[in-house]
Design a protein around this nucleic acid. Structure first.
Lengths: 342, 342
DNA sequence: CTGTTAGCGCGTTCAA
DNA sequence: TTGAACGCGCTAACAG
């Protein structure tokens, strides 16, 4: 069971030199004869030598590892962010450990503990929809380990954040619906625990106000993002005395489900009711009618989060900056709001 | 920059006892007074103490970590496998580090090095479509670190593997098409580097043979899974002198793209041409017409891979078993082969 | 350019 | 039941 690990000592013995020389050769120390350097490297390769990162971390107090915590892996959104983040981290010479929280607070807490135990040099995080207590994140601050939030950020912590302009995106979505002649626009909103939901709601409200459309509280339904419930809310909306002629959904999965429900009922999209989503998931261009939505620069979000993190890691704790990067969304107009497109 | 880490010594000092006692208390050693035990645990919590896994790994020569390497994160397939695997690993008390290879051989090699440097206790792997050389995996065997393949397995290594019954799935797909009256069934196949492709191809061929349908080489097109190329192949097939009346695609993304291309051309699905995919991605039930495909027990695959891995980890190297688990697929019949299904 | 020494944080002997 | 001492593999001083 316990395999023999090849160590620096093995190389040193095989070559008849000291361990420190081997260590120097392996770390690219300049004060070393090029012959010995080559000999060491060759022997290392021959013996399948692998530096033991645990030993190195123990000394340097750095693990050369960045942690990524995402709330879920089921939508295409977070995997793409992870890809962007991983690329940026790798380019900077860092390893990455990823964990997903299953949209569960307890799992998220456990994940942060894994990160701490692994002595990560920093983490980027998007929270679960359940997360209301942030103590498990504050530990990182206290320990001097930088933390950067993206997408689902923690408002009460003064740390770097990467977000898209949710307010602006929602605003654009609603103005687009108004421009197609819709007037009773409902909003399937997200939970208030996510500040993102609140920003999108505000964009929705302000777009209506700016255009002198009265706000009807009956048309605003916050829900917990459990897809199975969409059907209930859509049916409810359609049975109102004055039903909506458009629905702006908090995200694409919600919008897709809305489309499916409405199609089953037999209403025409967009003539009877138009739909707009948020995020431009892969499926949104394929469903019929294709979904009008706001596209996000997904990989760029991951990349930016890592960039901010690396910046923090290179500073003293006393010198940390809590910048917030806000990336723009693009309105992608498709058939769920404009039938005549192609 | 260098943050002060809370160590056992800090706890020992604060309590005025020895480090070894603290260590024992923290590891649940029975030879310890319950009072001191409690005192230590309380102080540890108070000081936000986190055990340094690097130090522990250095001593125990175990990292308590399992590595997962997947070829990509873009389809919904691998994220789901990862979820299953992670759950099983966590349940067994292991941490997990995930990396994705971007379908690139070089990245995959780099990922294995990260795993080795992190001293993982074992890994589960699904290879990239490019991988033809397996030296980077064989290192694990030589070092006595168990490795388990899933889905995209390495035929030339005698290690545990988890697969679905690709042959049987393909066979069922083709027999289903035949049962709907189709006779010229094309196959958009995968690259030969993936043994999975070969097994699906064989299932396709044998189903035709069994039913005395002549095999037409023109109808079999292997490709490298680059979705952008599907359009070319589908157009090519449709322009044959005797075009196919059905297409069995190697996987769902290929099948989806095929549907989109055919719809654009204006042919009717399934009347003019029927389509079958493989894997039952989320999108397959939503596209119109919905896609007939083979569903895989995705999370079960990840879970099974971890189970096999844990089993290997508990054995001596000399006692390793190279079992192969084959999980069954289910044919999910939808409108892309049977129009009348509501 | 190279060898020697100390010690990173912790688990684990061996004594007491 | 506790304490002291050793060493996991490696890097970073300090001497040559």
């Amino acid at each position: 069971m316990k395999s023999h690990q090849i160590t620096i000592i093995d190389i040193a013995k095989a070559l008849g030199i000291s361990k420190s020389t081997v260590s120097r050769a392996l770390t690219g120390n300049p004060n070393i004869k090029s012959e010995t350097m080559e000999a060491v490297i060759e022997m290392a390769k021959k013996l399948d030598y692998q530096r033991n990162l645990h030993a190195i971390s123990l000394i340097t107090r750095k693990s050369n590892t960045i942690g990524i915590i995402v709330p879920e892996f089921l939508s295409s959104y977070f995997p793409k962010v992870v890809i962007g983040a991983q690329a940026a981290a790798t380019a900077a010479g860092y390893n990455v450990i990823i964990s997903q929280s299953n949209e569960t607070y307890a799992t998220e807490v456990a994940n942060t503990q894994v990160m701490l135990a692994n002595q990560v040099d920093g983490i980027i995080v998007s929270m679960t929809k359940e997360t209301l207590n942030y103590d498990h994140f504050k530990i990182f601050q206290r320990k001097g380990i930088p933390i950067v939030f993206f997408n689902r950020v923690c408002d009460e912590m003064a740390v770097p954040k990467v977000m898209v302009d949710d307010y602006d995106g929602a605003f654009k979505a609603v103005e687009h619906l108004l421009s197609t002649g819709k007037r009773r626009i409902a909003h399937l909103a997200g939970p208030n625990s996510l500040s993102m939901s609140v920003r999108r709601l505000n964009g929705y409200l302000d777009a209506l106000k700016k255009n002198n459309i009265p706000i009807d509280e009956d048309l605003i339904i916050p829900y917990d993002l459990t897809i199975g419930k969409v059907k209930i809310y859509v049916n409810h909306l359609l049975q109102l005395k004055h039903p909506p002629d458009a629905i702006f959904a908090i995200n694409d999965p919600t919008a897709i489900e809305t489309i499916l429900v409405i199609k089953k009922i037999g209403l025409r999209i967009p003539q009877d009711i138009a739909i707009v989503g948020f995020s431009n998931d892969y499926i949104s261009s394929i469903i019929e009618p294709s979904l009008t939505t706001l596209s996000q620069p997904v990989e760029k979000i991951g990349e930016t989060a890592i960039t901010l993190l690396l910046d923090q890691m290179n500073r003293n704790v006393s010198d940390w900056k809590a910048v917030t990067k806000v990336l723009k969304t693009d309105l992608v107009i498709r058939n769920s709001t404009v039938a005549s497109l192609l």
